[in-house]
């Protein structure tokens, strides 16, 4: 068990090292710190001197080491555009993205679990077939189309909801700008989180249905029936618990998809989160910001995946981690 966790941590470190190297290369190849510092109005000699002073002529590995050293202290460079440390810029946008993802996940859970379970329990029911067909349809509609048409109808045509931005936010303990505690913020949240939920829900409906149907075929469920346990208890305690374990692992893997989708959603709704920040940084060629975003998202991925793996193996030691033979 301990060796398993140890190996996972080692691997996580390794992946982080690769990510940091990639973003170092991006900064190294694309950014020009000298020009950023002094502009174009310097002589070649002055440039040379400055480059020497900054250590830009050192071997790459030494530069990378220095980059890592700074990164560990939380210094990942300064944004060209915002003129602030990149890590601060990203941190200020983090609450918006987290709240959006959280709202979407709540919607997904509320929709996908009942529908997926129903479709698994009554596979022949006309309603289940409809659920399945609609989830296939939902899977086939790209998120940006959903987002734009939701925005078009609800915000422009019918004028029911705001079309962009995050609206009013309230400060929570001075640390977190939250839009969850006032009407305006919640209204702004509705359309973006609905769009995200619209594309994520079908994935989870299908997943829950497939896993649950497998579980319902198992001997321990048949045995539960033989014990005379009530149907709701069999479905929601015996079966659902076993269904959710694999669903949670796959859910952890879907995190990447979620982040990618937040980039799309945020661009459409001008939601001031990390995704929009990233796309803006790409347009503005704000290299330090791009590479910091990379590291930031990389860390989130690696930490979440490692956590999911470890938690899963703790909750359920009898199951081998898939692909880990």
């Amino acid at each position: 068990m301990l060796s398993f966790i140890g190996r996972r941590l080692l691997q996580a470190m390794f992946v982080l090292l690769i990510i940091s190297f990639v973003s170092f290369m991006i900064q190294d190849k694309m950014g020009d710190p000298v020009r950023q510092m002094v502009g174009l109005s310097v002589t070649l000699e002055q440039r040379e001197a400055l480059q020497q002073e900054l250590g830009l002529n050192d071997p790459m590995l030494i530069q990378y080491g220095r980059f890592l050293g700074r990164a560990i202290q939380g210094d990942l460079g300064t944004s060209y555009y915002y003129k602030e440390p990149t890590i601060d810029v990203i941190a200020s946008r983090l609450p918006a993205t987290l709240e959006l993802s959280f709202a979407a996940l709540v919607l997904v859970v509320l929709l996908a679990i009942p529908l997926g379970v129903f479709a698994a329990i009554h596979p022949k029911n006309i309603l289940s077939r409809a659920v399945l067909l609609f989830s296939t349809l939902g899977l086939s509609v790209p998120i940006f189309i959903v987002a734009v048409f939701l925005m078009y109808f609800f915000a422009i045509e019918w004028g029911l909801l705001p079309s962009f931005g995050r609206g009013e936010t309230t400060s929570v303990f001075g640390l977190w700008q939250s839009g969850l505690f006032n009407r305006d913020g919640l209204q702004h949240l509705l359309l973006p989180s609905l769009s995200l939920a619209f594309v994520l829900t079908p994935i989870f409906i299908r997943l829950i249905r497939a896993e649950m149907m497998d579980v319902l075929q198992s001997d321990y469920i048949r045995y539960a029936w033989a014990k005379g346990i009530s149907a709701p208890r069999i479905y929601f305690i015996h079966a659902l618990k076993n269904t959710m374990l694999p669903v949670i692992t796959v859910g952890g893997i879907q995190l990447g998809t979620l982040v990618a989708y937040t980039i799309l959603t945020e661009s459409i709704f001008q939601w001031p989160g990390m995704g929009l920040l990233f796309m803006d940084a790409v347009t503005r060629v704000d290299v330090p910001l791009i590479s910091t975003y990379l590291i930031f998202v990389g860390v989130i991925f690696v930490v979440t995946n490692t956590l999911v793996d470890v938690v899963y193996s703790l909750v359920n030691p009898r199951v081998r981690i898939p692909g880990y033979s």
Binding site: D219, Y223, A226
Partner: peptide
């Protein structure tokens, strides 16, 4: 049932 390894609910 036949196989006690799969008869009890693992969770």
């Amino acid at each position: 049932f036949q196989d006690p390894m799969v008869t009890l609910n693992p969770v």
